[in-house]
Write a protein that binds this DNA or RNA. Structure first.
Lengths: 350, 350
DNA sequence: CTGAAAGCGCTTACAG
DNA sequence: CTGAAAGCGCTTACAG
């Protein structure tokens, strides 16, 4: 029906043989052009490139890699894609990998399915596997053992103490130490802990940071800290923080400083205290963790601990590149990132 | 040196031939077990599975797909991984794809490099390509033409009016119409527009929504709306909103209601007005767009427009599955998602 | 169940 | 520059 002949072939060219026939050259010659090999006439090269433009022919990566070309693919296993700091790490790392021409195969791991995810990565012959987030410790430990047995580079970001694993982790204890030092300097001696009663290692590390800092100042952890976490169910963090704050205010006596597990809980707590008529930081100080964008959006702005995500991603990329360099294979490396306290309006004198 | 022999072979098994030798069966038999074909003894099947567990052997996906097995991979091209609503759409879509056993190959597109990204997807023989975010219109239009020529399913999420493209887009005009209706009902007649002077289509659509709604109420757009966008450079949205609010307050007369491009600008504006001693919503009302989690964190909480991300992802997945079903191939489909106004404390009577 | 063979789409010597 | 050949790791008839 159409009277204008299509400029491009209707059926796309699917193989190098077909493509070579289209260009009018030998398969071998086309292949040499595609791979930038020397000793070819400029005219031949131009001819092939023009034909690629015209037809949109793309060599089949599956055939290429079967022939031995590297896949240049990194498998990245995420706990989820809904936790902003984790996604930021993913974004930063992916940028660095992309700059080195690595593609990223990203999968979200449903708990208990690490085996399936890793098998998929292995079948795709990825050159390394990265885990970002918190996973079941046993599960991940076993996966790492398998990867080590396969001699496949790996990296665990944000989950400390996986035996035998290469890890990059924020020094959460140091982050909490900075928070406590800051509050002690402001004259606070009684601390409310918001959402810190989890048995997760990343939470326990932080509690230890609090404990050690208090001890260094000759303060007893049990007498100086208070938690009402058991009174509420943690559903949405903001609501949890708000409810915890209200419960503290309902007590006869409550601490003057509150350390939250994360920024969302902290901002919820600020709202909870303000609802009850308390001033932040006049009556109580509140601190968060992660230093997300939301910290500047609350009133007052939230004092928080920055995760140094760029530094984390750079350490991660460096570890991966080192592991993928065959000359550099060594034993498991544990890298620690130093967090940074960012003081804002939510903390003040006791 | 080591006295305990390793339980697993030190060199991982890399090919089915090697694996078959290890199990002590013919390659053909192993292949049939792996592909769940009938007519095999239970003992043989168990033997092969045990050996897979023991060795961690994974068939090479590149060989499988060369033999004709589907790649079951979808290419997803993101504008970036730093815009929360875009990442939420990615997360929701990826969940739906994963439920259907599709893997996602995610790439971030640096402006001007769409050709490279699409070529990579094509070489990986993805079964469909999805674009999420805002891209250069000409560039994306051309890519879509190429994909259509290749008969490859595609979908553009969030970028309307790409000729010939299958799209799923939020009805941004309807979102703004709902905002304006809400404010008109509260008695507002003068509106400040915050960050809406962009020439991007997604912004223009929204301005049109405002214009049409005002017209329906016999109000003139130019006399009823005001913008000071030109006074400031848009760097960080929160700061931009705050600066815009301050500039409005500095004028002799300013509107009673402010419509922001997004939640960050809106919350910045709330801070700006409060800095100047104005009450929100007593003196001025402020609205956002996107209904992000931050909306409940500001004081007052922010009235905003919800993007209905789950509905968007479902429409997207449905479109992709329909396109990938060979029986259902049709002409380009444009799907529209209806947004929903969420009223909170930042808007009140004029 | 086995074993030899063909073939998926490529690349890479090799002889012309 | 060409053309025939081997081979990457698989699957799938096919004859035993």
């Amino acid at each position: 029906m159409s009277k204008t002949p299509p400029l491009k072939p209707i059926a796309p060219i699917r193989s190098a043989a077909e493509f070579a026939r289209y260009v009018g050259l030998a398969r071998t010659t086309v292949s040499r052009v595609l791979n930038g090999q020397p000793g070819l006439k400029a005219k031949t090269i131009a001819q092939v490139h023009a034909a690629m433009e015209a037809t949109g022919f793309t060599p089949n990566a599956y055939a290429l890699h079967l022939k031995g070309k590297r896949t240049a693919t990194i498998g990245i296993c995420m706990e989820d894609l809904l936790t902003p700091p984790a996604v930021k790490k993913l974004a930063a790392l992916q940028r660095l990998l992309r700059a080195r021409h690595y593609a990223s195969l990203i999968e979200v791991l449903d708990p208990g399915h690490s085996r399936r995810v890793v098998r998929h990565f292995l079948s795709m012959r990825v050159e390394a596997i990265v885990f970002i987030g918190h996973f079941i410790e046993e599960e991940i430990t076993q996966r790492i053992q398998e990867l080590t047995a396969h001699n496949l580079p790996h990296l665990v970001i944000d989950q400390p103490n996986i035996g035998g694993a290469n890890t990059v982790t924020l020094d959460r204890a140091a982050g909490m130490a900075a928070v406590v030092e800051h509050l002690l300097a402001l004259g606070h001696t009684q601390f409310g802990l918001l959402g810190m009663s989890s048995s997760l290692r990343t939470v326990q590390d932080r509690v230890e940071g609090v404990r050690d800092t208090l001890r260094a100042h000759r303060l007893d952890f049990d007498r100086s800290t208070h938690s009402l976490d058991h009174l509420h169910v943690r559903a949405r963090d903001f609501d949890y923080g708000r409810a915890l704050a209200r419960s503290f205010v309902a007590e006869k006596k409550y601490p003057t400083a509150f350390l939250a597990l994360n920024d969302e809980i902290a901002i919820g707590a600020i709202h909870g205290f303000q609802d009850a008529g308390l001033g932040v930081p006049q009556d109580v100080s509140v601190t968060g963790f992660n230093n997300q964008d939301i910290c500047i959006m609350s009133t007052p702005a939230l004092t928080s601990v920055d995760q140094q995500i760029d530094a984390t991603a750079e350490a991660a990329a460096e570890s991966l590149f080192a592991q993928m360099n065959p000359a550099h294979r060594r034993r498991a490396q544990v890298r620690t990132i130093a967090p940074q306290l960012v003081v804002r309006g939510s903390t003040g004198p006791a």
